[in-house]
Design a binder for these strands. Structure first.
Length: 432
DNA sequence: ACAATGGTCC
DNA sequence: ACTCGGACCATTGTA
């Protein structure tokens, strides 16, 4: 059995000769610098939003209790379940169970929407209180004297990804009504811009590369929208006739592939029957034989050698793959599929960070940029994204350099496209 | 102090 | 008889 790097090179990839441990060693000082620089936050707007959402959520709490006809702790899943299912006798037919009773998780409550107006209010209450208690209240308390937040990165993950903690800046909201508003509070210093550069579909591109799947390599090389292409394959419809719903479903299937897809898992996230999910998977693998083969080979290797590895040699042991417990062995099988994908994508980003840090140092030594506003600085990274702060006048050229650098850090068998955006705040960098 | 539950991100 | 991968954090409720 050939290892993953040898296979990739046979497929035409140009991979720098560096091991994952070496990458992490070079990365350490880069991460330290990013942590020390930090990212500026508009504390006032966070506090303003916090107060606003607290008022809204308090109103909702009162309405919920009124509907329930009782004062109880809405934040307590046990008390909430008692109200919904014992007192109000809402239907529990299809609902998932927890150890103590019926689940009140969002995906379960979603099934009860329309059944009673209390459900929507609970979901909205949860959304608002989450934002307030996890982001809006804590973050302003931990900014430094320059209103900057300093995260702490870690490298001790099962796949080689980075972690971010105290605070975690890798799960700052982006969706919903208030996600963008929160991201608008992550701002550039005076006379500076934020530049965000993120790899487009990096994990799927890695799948294409590691598997050599012809249809997928062709899709990425031609530059079509990958989810629409998948939808066209699944529904056997020309790509121009794909509906939004079809594309959304195909997107979920594509993510499923990265995670080590199973009919049950896919049916859960799509909220469809297991049989339908199985049919989609069947169709997917009928078109993407190379990916099917990749999955099988990863499982075979894990069983034989006890581990799987990434393009740069990071290894993850998977002893449970030979377990008699099917739950455990199948879980290990999905890890065997996912770890090389997620891990390789992480390594690509790490290499990009190292190269970017080098380039920034060179840029800052060309005294022009240097003196003004402290020069160009990497201030955050979020799995497939790098955010830089740069003087306004340098923003355009820095953006170009970032795109160029990141796209060329490795040569996969498909293009590694990077999207860049410039703005006064994090949200703005994602627009246009 | 710790597990369970739930939720945010990529 | 039911898990789609990887993280961190808040709250509740039990120990």
């Amino acid at each position: 059995m050939k290892n993953i790097l040898a296979r990739a090179e046979k497929l035409g990839c140009k991979i720098p000769r560096i091991k994952s441990e070496e990458i992490d060693k070079k990365l350490a000082p880069v991460l330290r610098l990013i942590e020390d620089v930090g990212i500026k936050v508009d504390v006032k707007s966070l506090k303003r939003l916090s107060e606003k959402l607290k008022v809204k959520s308090e109103k909702l709490r009162k309405e919920i209790q009124k509907n329930a006809g009782e004062e109880f702790n809405v934040a307590s899943p046990t008390q909430l379940a008692k109200i919904l299912f014992t007192k109000m006798k809402l239907p529990t037919g299809e609902l998932k169970r927890t150890k103590s009773g019926f689940s009140t998780g969002a995906s379960e409550l979603e099934k009860l929407r329309g059944g009673n107006p209390i459900i929507g209010k609970i979901l909205e209450y949860r959304e608002l209180s989450k934002l307030v208690s996890t982001y809006l209240e804590p973050l302003p308390k931990i900014v430094d004297e320059n209103f900057r937040l300093h995260t702490h990165f870690g490298t001790d993950t099962r796949t080689g990804r980075l972690t971010s903690a105290n605070p975690n800046l890798q799960n700052i909201p982006i969706k919903g009504d208030f996600g963008p508003e929160i991201r608008r509070a992550f701002i550039a210093e005076k006379n500076c811009k934020l530049i965000s550069a993120d790899y487009s579909q990096i994990e799927l591109r890695v799948v294409a590369c590691l598997s050599g799947d012809k249809a997928m390599v062709e899709a990425f090389s031609s530059g079509v929208d990958i989810h629409s292409r998948t939808a066209s394959e699944l529904f056997r419809v020309p790509i121009e006739k794909i509906t939004n719903d079809q594309r959304r479903l195909a997107k979920t299937v594509n993510f499923g592939v990265i995670y080590g897809i199973s009919p049950y898992g896919l049916s859960q996230t799509l909220g469809i029957a297991r049989e339908s999910a199985a049919e989609y998977i069947f169709r997917y693998f009928a078109v993407h034989g190379g990916i099917k083969k990749y999955c099988e080979e990863q499982i075979t290797q894990a069983k034989k050698l006890g581990y799987v590895e990434t393009l740069f040699g990071f290894q993850r042991k998977l002893p449970e793959i030979n377990s008699a417990d099917r739950i455990k062995s199948e879980s290990a099988q999905r890890m065997a599929i996912n770890t090389p994908v997620q891990g390789t994508a992480a390594e690509i980003l790490k290499l990009a960070l190292i190269r970017l840090a080098d380039q920034m140092q060179v840029l800052n030594q060309k005294s022009k940029i240097k003196s003004q506003n402290g020069g160009v600085k990497i201030i955050l990274t979020v799995h497939d994204e790098v955010i830089v702060e740069a003087p306004v006048k340098d923003a355009e050229s820095v953006a170009k350099i970032m795109k160029e650098t990141m796209e060329n850090v490795v040569k996969l068998s498909v293009p590694t496209e990077v999207e860049v955006g410039i703005g006064d705040n994090w949200d703005e960098t994602k627009k246009v």
